[in-house]
């Protein structure tokens, strides 16, 4: 027998190394999937900067303005909708008429240039969510959007993932709500 090039523990090292590579790769994949779905990447709790410092706390909690006053499409339509600049001015040509915070709104109306808001809740294009279908069956806004009346700047309070949608649909189905369907074309078409 000649001299062994590798000592006996080299086998162990090799096996441990191999295992690490295989397991590590698998773990990395799982971790990437997990991270991709994490609230950080989905920016769930990120407060979005907006062109106007609109404070829901003030309008909803203090003034008691109903959600549907501004997001009027939510009751029957596909999209809840954002109020046009004119809706803001409906009140603000009476109160806080010279507030510097409202300058972008006044400018929008004066120059007829729309305000470009940053989306907080953004579903993928292949999801066809219908606000009206949910509000008609008695869901309240905060079930999906959280307590917007406590948010100085709005963030996505719920994950808004397909698993999260389905979880709710299944719960309603289990309670006998036949309209809470879970077939694919309910949302994808």
């Amino acid at each position: 027998m000649g001299h062994q090039l590798f000592p006996a523990w080299a086998d162990t090292l090799f096996r441990v190394g191999l295992g690490t590579v295989v397991l590590g790769t698998g773990l990395a994949v799982v971790a990437l999937f997990g991270w991709e779905r994490s609230p950080q990447v989905r920016q769930e709790d990120d407060e979005r900067p907006q062109p106007v410092k609109f404070d829901h706390r003030h309008h909803v909690r203090d003034d008691g303005i109903d959600c549907l006053y501004c997001h009027s499409g939510a009751r029957k339509e596909r999209w809840a909708g954002l109020p046009d600049s004119q809706t803001c001015m409906g009140c603000h040509n009476q109160i806080w008429t010279s507030s510097p915070e409202l300058a972008p709104i006044r400018e929008s109306v004066a120059k007829n240039v729309p305000i470009v808001w940053n989306r907080v809740t953004d579903l993928p294009d292949h999801v066809y969510f219908h606000h009206g279908a949910h509000v008609q069956y008695g869901l309240t806004c905060d079930q999906c959007h959280g307590d917007v009346d406590t948010m100085p700047r709005v963030y996505m309070a719920k994950p808004m993932t397909m698993a999260w949608c389905l979880q709710c649909h299944r719960e309603y189905q289990a309670r006998g709500a036949t309209h809470a369907t879970t077939n694919c074309t309910t949302c994808h078409r």
């Binding site: 909708g81 004119q86 109306v109 470009v116 940053n118």
Partner: peptide, 14 residues
């Protein structure tokens, strides 16, 4: 990457 922030542009007068 983080998901891109998209925009909503409502009417000035709908």
């Amino acid at each position: 990457a983080r998901a891109p922030v998209r925009k909503i542009v409502p009417y000035v007068v709908q």
